[in-house]
Amino acid sequence: MMKQDITKLYGKYLSSGELLVLKYLSEHGAMKASDLSKKMNVSASHITNVTDSLTEKEYMTRIRSSVDRRVVELALTDKGKRILDECLEMKLVYFQKKFDSFSEQELEQMIALFTKLYKTQQ
């Protein structure tokens, strides 16, 4: 339910796949589509579809290598950085409202339980 709520918040700007690609490029810098596909563990066709959409929206650009013209890297534009920041802020505000009624102790307990759950899946 929360995932659907969050998607509705920024859905008019970005799909969840687009948000993940922008976030990944923001954290790791420009890279080739094939490398991005491997790092994110998604198909090359998925990356192509998402990056085509992001390029069309001017949130991302393709940069051809000056050393090897066959190599093309994907990079965020300033517009892409701004929309990413806006969407992440929307997400933060959503979670702040969602967990506002929890006490500090309840939040710490929930984090501990989710951490334990995460560790059992590795």
Rank of each mutant, 00 (worst) to 15 (best):
F114I: 06
Y24G: 00
H46E: 15
L107Q: 03
V42N: 05
L19N: 01
F99N: 09
F99S: 04
M90G: 04
T115A: 14
Y10P: 02
S45V: 14
E89G: 10
F99I: 12
A112M: 09
Q4T: 14
I63P: 03
S101H: 10
L19V: 02
I63Q: 11
V71Y: 03
L76H: 04
T115N: 15
Q109W: 06
K39R: 14
Q4C: 15
K3G: 09
E27F: 09
L54D: 01
G80F: 01
T115H: 10
H28K: 15
A30D: 04
L25K: 01
E86K: 15
Q4S: 14
M2Q: 13
T77P: 05
R69V: 14
D35E: 11
V21G: 00
Y24V: 04
L74M: 01
A33I: 03
A112N: 06
T115W: 09
N49M: 12
Y94R: 00
K12W: 05
V72C: 08
V50Q: 00
K32P: 08
L25T: 06
Q121D: 07
A44P: 12
S101M: 08
Y59E: 00
Y24E: 09
Q121T: 01
S101K: 14
T48Y: 14
F102L: 11
F102M: 15
K38L: 07
Q96P: 05
L20P: 02
M1Q: 12
L36H: 02
S37I: 00
K91D: 08
L9V: 07
I83D: 01
I63H: 03
S66Y: 10
A112E: 10
K39S: 13
S16I: 04
D68W: 15
K23Q: 12
D52S: 09
K3H: 13
K23L: 15
G11R: 04
S37K: 02
S15I: 10
L36K: 02
R69D: 05
L54R: 00
M1A: 13
G29W: 06
L74Q: 06
V42K: 04
V71F: 06
L14S: 00
R64M: 10
S65P: 06
R64W: 07
M31E: 13
V50H: 05
K91V: 03
K23T: 09
T48P: 10
H28A: 09
